[in-house]
Each structure stands twice: as C-alpha cells, then as structure tokens.
Amino acid sequence: MVRWTFALALGLWLAVFATLRLFIIPPAPVSVLTIYMTLVTVAILLFVMANEARWQGFLAPPRAVFAGRVSRPVQVTVLAGLPILVGFVAHLRLTPTWDAPFEPRVVHPQPPSSFTIQGRRIELAALTNPLRSDPAALDQRIAEGKTIYYRNCFFCHGDALAGDGPFAQVFRPLPANFRDVGTISMLQESFVFWRVATGGPGLPKGATPWHSAMPVWQQFLAEEEIWKAILFIYAGSGSTPRTWEEGTADVNRH
C-alpha cells in the first residue's frame, strides 16, 4: 500500500477534480473550484505527511526521478513535462477572458439607525410592524397586502414570490427570492421595511445601489401599504420574520 502512496494521492486529486468539475450542476464558478481544489490539495498533502511511513512512500517516486533511479524516458518526461505544465497553466490563467469585472456586493447591507419616509423620521431599532398588533384583522390585512403585491411587486418578485417575475431576468442582482431561507426569513420586519421604503437608491455603497432596480416604494405606497405588503410576502412565502426576545430590542435606547 505504502508503495503506491504517490500514485494514490495523485489519482485521488485528479478524481476529486474531475468530480467537482463534472458533477456539480450548474458548474461551480472558478473561484469556488479554486478554493475547493486548494483545500483538497492541502488535505491530501497533510494526510500523506501525517504518518512517517506514508510520507516516505510518497516521496519515493519523485526522489527516484530526481536521483536518476528510473529509466531515462521517464526522467525526461517528468523533467520536461513539469515546466511545460507550469507554463501552460500560467498561460491559461494570464490570458484575459474579458469577463465583466466582479463587483462585490453586500447581500444584507447595514441598515442606518434612522431614515426618512415621506418626510417623517423613523428610528429603525424600535420599529415593528404596527399591523401585527391586531391579530383579528391580520387576514384582512394580508389580503390587502396581496393586492398591493400583485399590483406592484410581482413583476420582479414573481407570482410564486420566488424572485422570478416577468422582469426578473433583466436585473442583476436578481430580485430577492422570498422563498429562500436566506432572505426575508432571516431578517426583521423593520429591515424589510427599510429596504422596501428606500429601495435601491437607499442602499449603502457596498451594496451597489446603482444596480438595484428596487424602486423607492415610499414614492408610490403609503407607510401602511408597505407594512401590508410585508405582511403578505411573509404569509405568502410561508416564512416568519426574525424576532428577538422580548424587551431586548431597545436596550441601546435610553
């Protein structure tokens, strides 16, 4: 077994590479693939190193090549092949693909402590959905929110609230998919309210406001209508807003 360490390690590396390359659908982006392969390389090397016998077994074949204990054609192939491989990989990496420059984007941007809506200043920290206070009227409010949603939001966020409305494909970033656990279900309603009310132009720089197609909804909707729409997107997508324990939200206020 130890005799074959080198071959096994190399084979394993290639097998993992092939697997990641071929069996992830849609294909994993190069950046992720690079992370994965770096880790796999390190892991294989560490594993080989972690046992003295294994390590010696691993070193034996390259040692044999460099010390000239193998046949000349093998020596030549390895010694010539390695530089060629290095050059080829370098060439591949250096050739520009002229893909669009990557623009880093903060997915959940940092909300401000307060913002203005329709001339009124709102403190975000203490903000809760006022419409939740009356559970009896909740269904009615959700139904109203649904109407608002379908007259305004669904063009991008879709009938199924999955971010796939008729306009969705035009925009990058794609409109939020409310059914994704990583979106509204991990946010407080106050955050969602801020996003809806101030739209793309209300985003901080790190979230590239110039790209976001989210309209500034306070221009078209009253505050209560926004809350209704928010009620609906939670109800419609089957998620619940993130909450904190009672009484802690206003600790930093005096």
Partner: peptide
C-alpha cells in the same frame, strides 16, 4: 498584453532550473 506570452515561459524556465 505581451506578459501573457512571456511570463509562462519564464515560469517554465524557473521550474526547470529548480528541477
């Protein structure tokens, strides 16, 4: 850019020298 052609050759030569 010219580096696309030159750098790989240089790297290959460097590897060869190391070998």
């Amino acid at each position: 850019p010219w580096t696309v052609h030159i750098v790989p050759v240089l790297l290959a030569l460097l590897t060869l020298a190391g070998e």
